[in-house]
Design a protein around this nucleic acid. Sequence first.
DNA 1: GTCAAGACCTAAAAGGTTTTCATGTCGGCT
DNA 2: AGCCGACATGAAAACCTTTTAGGTCTTGAC
Lengths: 347, 347
Amino acid sequence: MGTVGGVEMHENGTRPPTLKDVAALAGVSIATVSKALNGREHVRAETRTKVQDAAEKLNFLPNVLAQGLLSGRTGTVGLLTNDLVGRFSIPVLMGAEDAFGAGSTSVFLCDARGDAIREQHHLRALLSRRVDGLIVVGDRTNPRVSLGKDLPVPVVYAYAPSMDESDTSVVSDNVGAGRQAIEHLVSCGRSRIAYISGNIDYAAARDRAQGALEALSGHSLELVGGEVYYGAWSEAWGRGAVRTLLARNPEVDAIACGSDQIARGALDALREAGRNVPGDVSVIGHDNWELIAAQGRPPLTTIDMNLERVGRKAAKLLFAAIDGKTSPGLHNIPTSLVTRESTSLTH
Amino acid sequence: MGTVGGVEMHENGTRPPTLKDVAALAGVSIATVSKALNGREHVRAETRTKVQDAAEKLNFLPNVLAQGLLSGRTGTVGLLTNDLVGRFSIPVLMGAEDAFGAGSTSVFLCDARGDAIREQHHLRALLSRRVDGLIVVGDRTNPRVSLGKDLPVPVVYAYAPSMDESDTSVVSDNVGAGRQAIEHLVSCGRSRIAYISGNIDYAAARDRAQGALEALSGHSLELVGGEVYYGAWSEAWGRGAVRTLLARNPEVDAIACGSDQIARGALDALREAGRNVPGDVSVIGHDNWELIAAQGRPPLTTIDMNLERVGRKAAKLLFAAIDGKTSPGLHNIPTSLVTRESTSLTH
DNA sequence: GTCAAGACCTAAAAGGTTTTCATGTCGGCT
DNA sequence: AGCCGACATGAAAACCTTTTAGGTCTTGAC
C-alpha cells in the first residue's frame, strides 16, 4: 500500500499466486502440484506435504475460472429475480443459497425489476459467464412468460411458475393453503366464516379463496357474506372490510384473510368494534410474515408458505437438471399452519 | 431433448459455440472473428458483417471466463451479507446491484448468517472465483471485525462499518438522523419531547439517541421523562413505553421513536389513551419502513436511512478501489426526512 | 513490369488449470 | 549383472479468448 495524494493505492502489481509459483517454491513441476493438491495418487507422501506447505505459504487458491474453462462446468448458478425488495423472493433466494451453499456452487444475483429488457440483458450476462443453470424467481404467484426452450442451460422457475407447463416450476400450494385455513377454523368449532382477500388480479388471492371454498363445501358450509371480499393487500382494506362485514353479518364467528396484513387490519377493527379475538371471532391470515403476524393483537394464526423450502427444492431440481435429469412440470410445496392466539379451540 | 424413463434429459453434448465455430462458419480465422465482433479496426466492413451474421446464427456469446483469464479482471464482485432476510441488507444490496448493473459487473451473493466459519468459507470461494472486489454488508450498524488487510482484492464495508478505521466503510448517518428527527419536531412547534428507543445493545439505538440529545440541547430543551427509554425493537415495547410515559409525564407533546415499529406501537397506545396524533402529540419514527410507516394510524413521519444510496456509494467506492484509488475511512450518508400525517406544523 | 505502401487477414502465444502420456528412478528378482 | 515392473515426476495439450507480429494481396505510380 503506497499513499498518493492522500489516497491509498491498492496493491495492483501483485497477481494472485498460481500453480507455477507453488511449483517453483516447492521445486517440482506444475503437474505434480496439481495432483498433490487435488489428492490424486502417484504422488509421494513427502512430496505432497512439501507442495501443501508451499501452497499454504503463498496463500494459493486455485483459479476456478481456469478450472471451469477446462471442465465446462463453472460451479455457478444465476438467480434472476424480479422483486428483490419484495417480501417473497428473499426467502426463496435464501433457500436456494442454502441448498447451494453446502456444495461448491456460487450464486449470481440479478434483479430485473419487472423489466423484460433488463431481464434479457441479465440473461445474456449470465450466459456469457457460463452459468451451469438458472433459477427465475417471480414477484407474484401469477404465471410468468417462459425464458424459452433454446437456452443452453436448464432453468427452474420458483414462486411464480412458468406459463409453459413443460418448464420446471416450484410453487407454494396456495389452493391447499386456503383449504388448510378453513379446516383449522372449522376444527376450532367455527362455522360462520367470512373471507377477506386482497387484489383479485393476484393468482395467490384467487387460489387461496378457491381452496377455502372447496373446504367449506366439504363441510357443507357457506361463506358468510355470500362471497369472497376482494380488495387490496393493506391493513386499511382489512379494517374497512371488517366494518362492512360486521354491519351486514354480525353473526360471523371467524374471518379468514388473504394475507397477514389484511388480517392485522381485521384484528384492529374487531377490537375497536368490541369483539373479542379469539373469544367471539377467530382470525387467520396467510404468509406468516413474522413481523406482522407476531406483533398482532393478539398474535395471529396464519399459514406459512414455506418459501425457503420452495427455494431449496428449486435448487435441488436445478442440480438434478444440470446432471441431466430434468423433472418438467409444476411442483407444489405444501404449506404449514402456524397457530398463535388469534384462533383457539372452542369446541 | 430426449425422454428417458419419463425423465427428460437436458441436452448435454452441445457445448456453447466458441470463436472457432463462428470462424469456421464465416470462413475466416479466429483472430478475425475476435476483431470483427469487438469493433476492432483492420477488418473489412463486408467481412465484419459476414462474421456478425455467423455469430448471430450460432447464438454466440463470448466466454467471459476466458476473457477474465487473460485480462486478470473478471468483472465480478462478491457481496457478503450477514442477514439476507433482514430488512437492512436488502436495500444496500439493491443499491449496489443498481450501481453495478449499468456496467458489465455481476454480483456473487453469499449469506454468512452471522457465522464466522461460514464467512471464511464464502470468502475463500469468492477469492477462488477471482472476484475483483468485495462488499461486506452487516446486519446491524455495530462495527464488525475486519476481514483483514492481506486480501488480494479491495473491500468496502456497508451498513456495518469495519472496526479497523483504515478500511473503507459506508454507513447511514445515525447521529444526524437523530438530530434531524428532533429538529423536525421542534420546527413543528413541539418542545416537550420524549424519546423511546430499542435495544441499547444496538449502535443504531445509541447513535440516534445521541443525535437527538445534541439537537435538544441546541434548543436548550430537555428530554421529557429525563432520559431515553431503551427497550426492544417491537410494537409492544412502543405501546408499553407510551403508557408509562403518559402516566408519568402527561404534558408530553411529541415522541421520537428509535424505529418505525416502536413508533407504530406508540401511535396505537396514544390513540387508545384518547390522545390525538398529530393534534395533541406528534410522533416520528426511524427507518421509513414503508410497510409499517405508511400503514400507521395516522401514517407515520419518519427518517429514511437512504440505504440504497449506501449501497450505491459502496459500489462506487469499490469500483474506484479496483482501479487503484481507495478512500479509507468512514463515509456517512445523510438521511432524509419523510413527512406523513403523524407530525404537522402547529406553529 | 516492378516496387512501395497499405489494407486485410492469420498464426501463435499467453493466461491457469487438469489430464494424458512419456520419461525417469529404484528395488527386487533371476 | 541384467531386467522387469512399480511408482514418481514432468512435458505438453486442451479449454477459449485477445493481442502482437508477421504474412499475403491489392493498388497505384513509375
